[in-house]
Nucleic acid binder design. Structure first.
Lengths: 220, 220
DNA sequence: CCTAAATGGAGGATAATCCTTCGTTTGCTG
DNA sequence: CAGCAAACGAAGGATTATCCTCCATTTAGG
């Protein structure tokens, strides 16, 4: 597949990438059963082009997942490169992942792992496991630093980010963003090993009921 | 509407309640756009019965929401009645809400608040606000006890529970349950004000990658 | 400038879901 | 316990959403 990709004409390759990027967004918003026509439309591409490149929905999902894993790997590398301490890197990585809403295809990705292992030489599974190893290294170091709470593993973080990123249905993107920001701080707090006590409140502007209603009204 | 309900024949009232309870489950799993025929089937009721009682989807959603708010109120009352301390009550309430997956209709509920305010005398909004007041009382007391971290309000908890409860798509109910349990402990940890440090790990059996894969294989 | 590659959109096929109609069953009241 | 109004379920036509192929046209690149 990757060799095929290299032999594509320039415009075709551009479109292919655009489709994957758009699909990630759309799948995030609507789930993997979102109409492919919407993906095509928002990617600025004819529906036929999408089907030519990805014969069925499953292939597209697979590629989106692979692409996302690559992106996560890049973010991880960047975070560790720019932070001397593991905890700092971890926090940045988490923030970034949430920001990009990258993890959303992951639950979707998982059930495909088995057949992936047969079909494509397990590219997906291998990449996931590698990523997991890297994250484990990061979390262990952060724990040795005394910053990351013990008993927390990459899976906790991974799943936490997935849950966080996942937008709630019906309410708009803007309100969802607000909520995610709020909950993200809470989540980071739950990972941190530094002593907390009731006299040290979380540092953030909490959401009020009025604010919530105002946003809902706007979305209406 | 509530007067109408009282005048229903006994079997009709039973069915009505069964439909609402089932709808809560189905909406939880599939979102509010789930086919109503599935709701009817799983409620053990003909599709006509559902349409007779709830002329359109919106009415059903509204009623499910109202019903859920009532249930939450009951759980809250029960939790405070059986716990001398506010923190204990809060923790039980949260566990229970997550367990019942009660909060899932809430995001769905919210956008209806405005028209609800016009349509039915704002029963929905009034009940929500009342619930919010009660929870605020509980959280404030828990903070005075020095147990609940400062800066946390009922909305944080509410939204946290919603995000927690919401099952991930594609993967089965069982794995979802596991994940929710794991993340719940993390969430509770983020609310607690008691000093933590790296030497005191979370008390739970963490999820491993192998376990995750095993479950996925089973679901396949 | 020429050709193979790539494109887009129309539209028939299929599937999902809606929601009404109607003959049958059942709770309840007198 | 009888009779009637209320309630029921299932079938199926109407509607809508989505799929995905076909083919005339455009474009990249040697």
């Amino acid at each position: 597949m990757s060799e095929n990709t290299a032999r594509l004409r320039a415009d075709a390759r551009r479109n292919r990438e655009q489709i994957i990027a758009t699909a990630r967004e759309v799948f995030l918003e609507q789930g993997i059963h979102a109409p492919l026509e919407e993906v095509a439309r928002r990617a600025g591409v004819g529906i036929a082009t999408l089907y030519r490149r990805f014969p069925d929905r499953h292939t597209l999902v697979q590629q989106v997942a692979l692409d996302s894993l690559t992106l996560v790997g890049e973010e991880l590398a960047h975070a560790t490169a720019t932070h001397p301490d593991a905890w700092g890197a971890l926090v940045q990585l988490i923030r970034r992942l949430v920001e990009l809403r990258l993890s959303v295809i992951m639950p979707v990705l998982l059930p495909g792992l088995e057949e992936d292992a047969r079909g494509e030489g397990g590219a997906l599974k291998a990449r996931r496991n590698q990523l997991f190893e890297q994250m484990q290294q990061l979390t262990r170091t952060a724990q040795q630093e005394g910053q990351l709470r013990r008993g927390i593993n990459p899976i906790d973080i991974w799943l936490g980010v997935i849950k966080l990123s996942r937008p709630l249905p019906v309410i708009g993107a803007e309100l969802n963003g607000l909520i995610i920001d709020q909950q993200l701080e809470l989540f980071l707090g739950s990972l941190h090993a530094t002593a907390l006590d009731a006299s040290e409140p979380l540092r953030r502007q909490p959401l009020t009921l009025d604010e919530l209603d105002r946003h809902l009204k706007m979305a209406e």
